[in-house]
Simulated scan of single mutants.
Amino acid sequence: MKSALSNAARRPGARSALGLTLGLAAATFACSVMAEEAAPAAAPELTSNVGVVSEYVFRGIRQTWGNPALQGGFDYAHASGFYVGTWLSNTSANLYANANVEIDIYGGYRGAVGDFAYDVGVLQFIFPKANYDKITPAGSYASKTYDTTELYLSGTWQWLNVKYSRAITDVGYFGFTSNNAGFGAFPNKPNAGVTGKDTNGSWYIEANIAYEFLPTWTATLHAGRQTIAHSKGLDYSDYKVGVTKAMPGSWTLGLAYTATAGADYWKNYPSLAGNGTTKDMNASTWIASVNRVF
């Protein structure tokens, strides 16, 4: 992208005007380092979450090559407002060379002033053993990991949440550099690519709405804009709309529709695993989910 304390999680990008997306509700909102806010707990609390989605989509980009994903994590919230957590999901080596899993580790501080809740923290995306030098054929690109660190600032008032995330490492936008994502690197848009040395300073801004229109039924909307620093033609917008249903036993069912604008360089994206397949990573798609918080 992307647990209740998380931010939904994760990555790739393209370009277009700011849009309206929907937050896949509990599973996406709850299981991804990027979404919903709450005031500090009255006492220390350890929670966990587990879920299954028909496809893992992060910031509008499909992460599992059209396949389902098993996701889950743990969150610890202290009475002071500080919290830490981790979240995991399977991913695809077709998109991240030699990757099978994404691990997100995050921590921050959450508080409230009246009806306004705020959250500030840091999020580390980790893709164990994944590296651009593993792209088939091996050695085609210089060594560079996909691991990315972002700072985030979020504010929530009633049903409206706004969040800003910014990359602070030279890895920038998930390892994009002029070496591996320069002009000509994207078959469907050869005039787009990284123009500087790296993409440090890339940022993502999003607005999320979660409104309970009937008891246990919540409508969600999401609009996000990904800006990739030191690049041309790679910025894009993503949108999502959906609904969730709270079930007995802390289960939540969700259905969402996600789309992008300006991310056409992700069309006909060739597998980095060298199996000859391609995928429209930016294609609009439905996402079904089931999630439980313990």
Rank of each mutant, 00 (worst) to 15 (best):
Val52Gly: 04
Pro248Glu: 00
Ala79Glu: 13
Ala256Leu: 06
Ala99Arg: 09
Phe183Met: 03
Asn131Tyr: 07
Ala181Leu: 01
Thr91His: 03
Pro40Cys: 03
Trp87Gly: 09
Arg225Thr: 03
Trp217Val: 01
Ser231Ala: 08
Leu255His: 02
Thr244Asp: 14
Ala219Pro: 03
Phe116Val: 15
Asn188Thr: 15
Gly107His: 03
Gly108Met: 06
Asp170Asn: 10
Ala167Trp: 06
Ile205Trp: 10
Asn188Arg: 15
Lys267Ser: 08
Ala30Cys: 04
Gly108Ile: 08
Pro248Arg: 07
Asp198Phe: 03
Ala79Lys: 09
Trp157Gln: 08
Lys2Cys: 05
Asn208Gln: 12
Met34Ser: 14
Ile209Lys: 08
Val171Glu: 01
Ile209Trp: 12
Gly254Leu: 01
Gln63Met: 06
Leu18Gln: 04
Met281Gln: 12
Tyr211Val: 00
Ser32Gln: 13
Thr216Leu: 03
Gly276Asn: 06
Lys2His: 11
Ile103Tyr: 13
Met1Phe: 11
Val33Cys: 07
Glu37Thr: 11
Ala223Asp: 04
Trp203Glu: 04
Ile126Ser: 11
Gly73Val: 02
Asp238Ser: 13
Thr64Pro: 03
Thr227Val: 12
Thr149Trp: 12
Ala273Val: 05
Glu45Arg: 14
Asp280Tyr: 11
Asn161Val: 11
Gln63Pro: 03
Val33Lys: 09
Met1Gly: 13
His78Lys: 02
Gly172Met: 04
Gly23Asp: 10
Val162Ala: 14
Lys189Asn: 14
Trp266Arg: 08
Ala79Asp: 14
Trp157Tyr: 15
Gly108Thr: 10
Phe174Gly: 01
Pro137His: 06
